[in-house]
């Protein structure tokens, strides 16, 4: 008694809550679980689990090595399960317009100056800075929650992931 256990979700160990209706439509709450979403996703698929106008939070199943991406605005990667290595690169020439939204895939290996490498563990958050390129690597299946803006590779499949009744 008095020893507390903090319960975090994991890709292979999570318990889902839900919406109990009194006088409403369950769809209004767009209720999902990021670990369930990631468990059914392809590696590096950017599945929106929250959306507010143009802004999204994406649940990403990190597994293996991602493609290089460039982001026109700051993004923030929160590791909610597993471990992640992030490489950052300052491109030799601008690869994205700062007025765009959402990150873009970069074809091949971009030319530029290495900025650094970040080793993230459970609960760690990293800045993915505007105008820069990044590539992620996860030795074991991991889950990232990404704060970003809806872009060309954001996947919306609300009917598949959300409580409907």
């Amino acid at each position: 008694m008095g020893d507390y256990t903090t319960v975090f979700g994991r890709l292979n160990n999570y318990t889902k809550g839900g919406v109990e209706l009194i006088n409403d439509d369950a769809k209004n709450y767009v209720f999902s679980n990021m670990f369930e979403v990631a468990s059914r996703a392809k590696p590096w698929e950017k599945v929106a689990v929250a959306k507010n106008q143009q802004y999204v939070l994406e649940a990403i199943r990190a597994e293996g090595t991602s493609e290089w991406r460039v982001t026109p605005h700051d993004e923030f990667a929160l590791v909610v399960d597993g471990d992640l290595v992030v490489e950052l690169l300052d491109p030799a020439k601008p690869l994205v317009d700062a007025n765009e939204s959402g990150s873009r895939a970069v074809k091949g290996d971009p030319q530029g100056t290495p900025m650094g490498t970040i080793h993230l563990g459970h609960g760690h958050m990293a800045l993915l800075p505007a105008g820069r390129c990044y590539r992620m690597r996860a030795e074991q299946p991991s889950v990232v929650l990404l704060q970003t803006i809806q872009g060309p590779d954001t996947v919306e499949k609300w009917a598949d992931i959300c409580q409907k009744f």
Binding site: V7, T15, K16, G18, E20, I22, V30, N33, A50
Partner: peptide, 18 residues
């Protein structure tokens, strides 16, 4: 103030508040 729903959220759950 009339009741509409009860939302139980566990670790990893995502829910909008309309």
């Amino acid at each position: 103030g009339r009741p509409r729903a009860k939302v139980t959220m566990k670790a990893g759950d995502c829910s909008a508040m309309p």
